[in-house]
Amino acid sequence: MIGSDPGRLRVAALYFGGFLGPFGGALVASMLPEMGASLGVSTGSASASLTAYLLPFAAVMLVSGTLGARWGRLRTVRIAYAVYTAASIVCVFAPSLEVLLAARAVQGCGNAFTTPLLLVTLAEATPRARLGRVLGTFGALQAAGQTSAPLVGGLSAEFDWRYAFVVLACVSAVLGVVGLPRTTTAEQTAPPRERLRDALRPYVLRVGVVALLGWGALGGVNFLLAYRAEDQFGLTASQRGLLLTVFGLTGILTARSVGRLIDRLGAQRTVLIGAVAGAALVAVAGTVPVLWAVAAAWAVAGIASQFVLVGVNAAVLAGGSSRGGAVSVVQAFRFSGAAVAPLALTPLYLAHPSAGFLVPAMLLAVVAPLAMPRTSAP
């Protein structure tokens, strides 16, 4: 257990590290016009800064947990934060879009080496009976980062969009200095020789498929909801932003309670509840003609997303071998779902708006329960 003041500070740093990842990824979403104008490119071209972060982040995370465990978690996390800080500084002074995109890609790679190692450290510092609620708190901070990033980015852009990256550089530098809490495992003195093949075992891959669907077919349809809010209800940009924000807000408020439920019911059962309920809510949000019903369904869908996303983390961290590599693979699947969703769902929406919501809802309701293992990690 961690009782000293420095220990508490390091535990707090674990949670803030969870906040930093999605916050840094989504920060540019609301300041793309200002970035584009400053760099002499269109808003559409500037939007590549989202993909430049997300794709390397998801790809590198397939191996980052295994490599981090092999190299030593504390050393790896500190180096990753240093790289993230340096890349953020480059973003501050980027003279062109090409330089900015390269720096964003490096940010994504650095973040890929923090998120899974932070989760494993939390798991090892927590009794198994309390693991769900701790992961729920971590999930709430991730949801807070995702939800608050557009607001902070927009406020920064009112003055200069580069200030947002100054904030990222300062926060990541502080987190790197604080480091990680000590745990009771031998990992601190003798890092295990984890292998990627151990992380890519069938149990982990099946949980990864659920994570991909849980984010791609649930949270990943938020952009479609923005389209629908404009096309069918005529909402303005600020009204659409408010509608989308309720998803994240309910996730923040309920993630820790969802974690407690996981401790009582088990990760597998909680994920199944979230997947089926989330599928129904996506279908409602994408088809009902009443705006208040759409908003209510999307708010409750934010809770269902925590059932799935906190649950899959608990499923791979509660036991089994190569936990660092396993959670890394599952997180890579999750963010791959976010990257694939716009490419896969936009054509469906353009063909028929309801199909853009009903197809992912059906996949979430049918495939996720079939893929989710019924037992704990072997």
Score class of each variant (00 low, 15 high):
Ser42Met: 09
Phe138His: 10
Arg128Ser: 08
Met61Tyr: 03
Val120Ser: 08
Arg73Asn: 07
Gly153Thr: 10
Ala157Cys: 09
Ser172Val: 12
Tyr84Trp: 04
Phe159Met: 07
Pro116Val: 07
Ala48Phe: 13
Cys109Tyr: 04
Thr121Cys: 13
Ala94Lys: 01
Tyr81Met: 15
Ala112Asn: 07
Arg73Pro: 11
Pro116Leu: 04
Val171Arg: 02
Leu50Asn: 00
Leu74Arg: 15
Ala86His: 06
Leu97Gln: 00
Ala125Asp: 06
Ser64Gly: 05
Leu168Phe: 02
Ala105His: 11
Ala86Arg: 05
Gly44Tyr: 05
Ala129Ser: 14
Gln142Ile: 03
Val120Pro: 03
Thr51Trp: 03
Phe159Gly: 00
Thr115Ala: 14
Ala103Cys: 13
Arg75Ala: 13
Ala103Asn: 05
Ala48Met: 09
Ala86Pro: 03
Tyr163Trp: 14
Leu118Asn: 13
Thr147Pro: 02
Ser47Leu: 10
Arg133Tyr: 00
Glu98Ile: 08
Arg73Leu: 04
Leu135Cys: 00
Val134Thr: 11
Ala129Lys: 12
Trp161His: 06
Gly72Arg: 02
Pro150Asp: 08
Phe57Met: 07
Met61Ser: 08
Val63His: 07
Ala144Arg: 06
Ala86Lys: 05
Ser38Thr: 12
Leu74Cys: 01
Pro150Ser: 09
Thr114Arg: 02
Val77Thr: 14
Arg162His: 12
Val60Ile: 15
Ala69Trp: 03
Leu55Ser: 07
Thr126Gln: 08
Thr51Asp: 10
Arg75His: 11
Asp160Thr: 02
Leu168His: 01
Tyr81Ala: 11
Tyr81Asn: 08
Gly153Arg: 01
Thr85Val: 07
Ala144Thr: 14
Gly108Asn: 10
Tyr81Thr: 04
Val77Ala: 12
Ser148Leu: 15
Val167Ile: 14
Ala140Met: 13
Ala143Ile: 07
Leu155Asp: 09
Thr126Glu: 01
Thr85Met: 11
Arg70Ala: 08
Ala82Gln: 07
Gly132Phe: 00
Val60Pro: 01
Thr85Pro: 04
Ala86Asp: 05
Arg78Asp: 04
Val41Pro: 07
Ser172Met: 05
Arg130Ser: 06
Thr51Gln: 10
Leu122Ala: 15
Ser45Met: 12
Arg130Tyr: 04
Ala69Phe: 01
Ala59Lys: 04
Phe159Ile: 15
Leu135Glu: 00
Ser156Met: 15
Ile79Val: 15
Thr85His: 05
Gly139Thr: 06
Val83Ser: 05
Ala59Leu: 15
Leu39Arg: 05
Ala169Gln: 08
Gly108Lys: 10
Ala157Gln: 01
Cys170Glu: 03
Gln142Glu: 10
Ala143Lys: 02
Ser38Trp: 04
Phe113His: 12
Ala94Ser: 08
Ala105Asp: 09
Val134Gly: 01
Leu54Phe: 09
Glu124Lys: 13
Gly132His: 06
Val83Met: 15
Val106Leu: 14
Ser148Thr: 14
Leu67Met: 10
Thr121Met: 12
Thr43Asn: 01
Gln107Thr: 10
Ile89Lys: 02
Ala164Cys: 11
Ala80Ser: 15
Ala37Asp: 15
Val77Ser: 07
Gln142His: 12
Ala143Val: 00
Ser172His: 03
Pro127Ser: 13
Val106Asp: 02
Ala69Thr: 11
